[in-house]
Write a protein that binds this DNA or RNA. Structure first.
Lengths: 132, 132
DNA sequence: TAGGAAGTTTACGTTAACGTAAAGGTTGCT
DNA sequence: AGCAACCTTTACGTTAACGTAAACTTCCTA
């Protein structure tokens, strides 16, 4: 039973097209230790895990995370969780991030409200122009 | 009736302390046209409007806005809204920003859920360690 | 077999957002 | 008068996240 695990392999250009980023960027993320594709000869081969990570990297960027920050989030899943000390410091990190994000939620809601006001204002001005 | 408008004047170091940023940053924001303090001799004098703008600049940064983007948002409030063409292009800009922010809201909620999962996971592992 | 497409490494260039240092002006003590 | 605490301008330095170009290999195919 030769099972099919081969469908989850991607070339660098596959991923660059799928995520609409340059191959340069993908190689740079590797330099920074955020993805670690295997090799066939010289050529990089990406798997499902790498693909997910790319997605998370891009999500992080949309949130204004640096690559280093995203990397630290990745590590949270891999860190050795056998010691209570480790666990507590991880949980502290998690809580810091959560607080940052809650602040961001507030910020975003504030800006959305302002933009809505502005939009309404524009619509009214536009209507006034038409009815003249 | 000499009214008191003088309480809304700040020096550069006042603001740098209040917002916990360097004076260098504040001067840089001026270079970029985001604040425009008046002068008494050489010395910069900031008013309430400048202070509000600084607050908005920092909020923008927390959301990952570039200074240029924040500047464009400022302009939205000042632009002359006399032409329908202007108005429509402004509203397009507003909508683009709104879409970005909605995407960010989704992203943040996703990350918050993941962090919560991770936290619960940590708590359980910790409990298991204690009950051993 | 010649060329084109996709891959690689190496390395210098670029932009944003400041940091940092030098050199100097003004004000207020003491 | 002196100096400490501010302020100023000018200008070069720095980091992150790539862009861009050169020079080369490997594979496919017309």
């Amino acid at each position: 039973m030769t099972s099919k695990i081969s469908s989850t392999k991607y070339s660098i250009s596959d991923l660059s097209k799928e995520f609409d980023i340059t191959t340069r960027s993908i190689r740079f993320y590797e330099d920074q230790g955020l993805v670690s594709p295997s090799r066939k000869g010289q050529t990089r081969i990406y798997n499902q895990r790498d693909k997910v990570r790319l997605k998370l990297i891009l999500r992080g960027k949309r949130l204004g995370f640096s690559l280093a920050e995203t990397g630290r989030l990745f590590e949270l899943y891999d860190v050795d969780k056998t010691s209570a000390k480790q666990l507590n410091s991880i949980m502290e990190l998690i809580n810091n991030k959560k607080n940052d994000l809650k602040q961001q939620l507030e910020d975003i809601n504030a800006v959305l409200i302002e933009l809505n006001d502005l939009e309404v204002n524009c619509q009214e001005t536009l209507k006034a122009l038409e009815n003249k």
